[in-house]
Design a protein around this nucleic acid. Sequence first.
RNA 1: GGUCCCGUAGCUCAGCUGGAUAGAGCAACAGAUUUCUAAUCUGUCGGUCACAGGUUCGAAUCCUGUCGGGAUCACCA
Length: 596
Amino acid sequence: MNLEKILTQYTVKAVTSLYGVEPPENLLQVQETRKEFEGNFTIVVFPLLKISKQSPEATAEAIGEYLQANYPEVSRYNVIKGFLNLMIADAFWLGFMVETRFDDQYGYSVQSDKFSKMIEYSSPNTNKPLHLGHIRNNLLGYSLSKILAANGNRIVKVNLVNDRGIHICKSMLAWQKWGNGVTPESSGKKGDHLVGDYYVKFDIEYKKEIEQLMQQGMDKDEAARKAPLMQEAQEMLRRWEAKDPETVALWKMMNGWVYDGFGVTYKVLGVDFDRIYYESQTYLLGKEIVMDGLKRGIFYQKEDGSVWVDLTADGLDEKLLLRSDGTSVYMTQDIGTACQRFEEYDIDELIYVVGNEQNYHFQVLSLILDKLGYSWAKSLKHMSYGMVELPEGKMKSREGTVVDADDLMSEMTNIAYEMSQELGKLDGLSAEEIDKTIHTIGMGALKYFILKVDPKKTMLFDPKESIDFNGNTGPFIQYTHARIQSVLRKATESGIDIHAVVDTNITLNDKEVSLIQTIYNFPKTINDAAGTYSPALIANYVYELAKEYNQFYHDYSILKEENPAVRHFRILLSKHVAQVIRTSLDLLGIDSPDRM
RNA sequence: GGUCCCGUAGCUCAGCUGGAUAGAGCAACAGAUUUCUAAUCUGUCGGUCACAGGUUCGAAUCCUGUCGGGAUCACCA
C-alpha cells in the first residue's frame, strides 16, 4: 500500500482516539511536504478543526505526537501553523530500497483483469511529407501507448492512412502534367517529399488559374470551383472511384513512394503500429449503418436525399451523414471504422490521438454511436492535443510555412554532433558508435521538448532558436543516466561488487531521502499519466529525479565514501535512479545512452 | 453569433480534484572542477498568476462577468 494512504489511515486512528470522532476520509489531506520545509509528508489539519475544537497548532501537535508514539514509520514531526510535517523513518526508506524489485518493470501496474485499448495515431495524408505537427501526434500516440501498457493494459496501435481523395489527386495530376516521369530513384528525392512537391506545384498553378478567372470578372468562389485544374482533379477522383486502371496504377505508384518515405520517417522517429488501415479500404464503411439509423428514425432525410442527424437537443448542431448523391462523408466513415474495430478486436476502449481542432467531431461521433445504441459508444476517447505554432502563427503546408519532420530530425542530429564534438565526447568512438550516440541525443532533445508540454496546450516552436541541450531537456536527463552508468563501470573496474547486499543500518541524508521518495512516487506517476493521457507528467517527473540526483552527486561521494555500508547504499541508490530514468525515458520513446 | 479551449517572470513551460513565502529552464550577471562525466552544481536578478467581483479560515486553482488570443459550428478530411 502507498505511504500516503497508510498515513491517512494512521491519522484517522489518531483523530478517533484523540477526539472520539472518526473523521470521514475526505477531511484528511496528506500531501508531500514542500521542499522549503523539513519533512516528507504533510497533514493539513484545518479541515479537522471542527472535530478537534482546538487551535490548528494544538491539533497538529496532538496528532503529531500520537503518530510518532504509535507508528514506527513516523520518526519525527514539526508543526508550522496548521501544517503537520512528518518525517518518515530511515528504516522505512531503506526497507523500500532493499525489498523492491527494481527491474525494467518497476513502476508498472499489474492488472489481473487487463483492459484492451486501441490507440489510433499518426493518420497522415499521402499527398505530402510529415511536419512538426505530425511529430507531436506520433510522439504523443506512441508514448501514450507505452504508458497505458505500463499501467497494465493490452494495447493495439493502429494507423489510419488517408490515401484517397482530392488531395492526392492534386499531386497525381501535377506530376502527370509537369513531372516528366520523375521518380524518387531518378531524382534521389525521398518519395513523400517528391509527391509533396507536386502538391505544392498544383497549388501554385491553381492559384494562377483562379487569378486569371477573377480578372475575367468571376468571383473568387466561382473561380475556385471552375478553374480547369480543379475540374481535372475532380475528374481524376471520379475515375479513381470508378476504378479506372490507369488512374489506379498511378495512384498506387505514387502512394508507394510516399509509404517508402513515411517508413523512413517513422523509423527515425522510432514509432510503430500493430495494424495499418487504409482509407481507400474503409471509406465506404458506415453507409449501411447510417441507412439503418435512418430506417429506425434516429436520423432524418432532407428533400434532396441527404441524411442528417439532429443534435440540437444535445446542445450541438445538425450534422450531415450522407450527401444528397448518397456518398459518405468523414463522419460516415468514422462511424463505420469504429464499428468495424469493435467487431474485429476485443477492445474496451478506442482512443483517437487527434488535434483539438477536431474536438467537435469526436463529440458528435460518440453521441451518434450512442444514439445508434452501441454499448461501447462511451468508450471512445479523444486524446486531444494542441497545435504546434511558429512565432508567426499556424503552420500552413500549402504556403510552405511548415517545419518538415525529416529536416528537423536531421538538424537535431547535426546539432548533437557539433555539441558532442565540441565537448570532446566523441573521442575514441567508432563511426558507428558516433552515429548512434548523436541520434540518441538529438532525438532525445526533440522528443523531450515536445512531450514535456501538457498535450492539451498549444505549444510554440521557434526554428530560429534551436532546441536546447542544457537545463530542462532530454539530453540533461540522458546525461544523468550516462553519468550513473559511468560510476557503476568505475565501481566494477575497481573491484566493488555493485550487486552486494546492502546493510540497512545506516543514516540517510536529506538528498538521499528525497531521492528515495521520488523513486517511491514513480508507480503513482505512471498511474496519473495513464489516467490523464499525459506523457508530460512522466517528463516532468524524470526531470525532477535527474535534477535531484545531480545535486546529490555534487554534494556526496559515492565510490570514495569511506564507510562501506554507506558506499554500497549509494551505489544501490544510483543504480535504481538510473533504472527509473531509463524506464521513464522509455515511456517517452527516448533512449538512455550509457555514455555521452 | 453559438459552443469549446487558452491567458502564470523578458522567452519557453510547471503548478490547477482549494492549503504554507507562486516554481523550473532559457536569457543576463557572479561563482564552483588537483576529487566518481562541468551536457553538471551554487547564487543574484526577474511576478498585480490578463482584469473585476464572488464563495472560503485559506483562491493561480472553484463560480460569475469583462478584456485579449485560438479552435470549431462545411454536401472538406
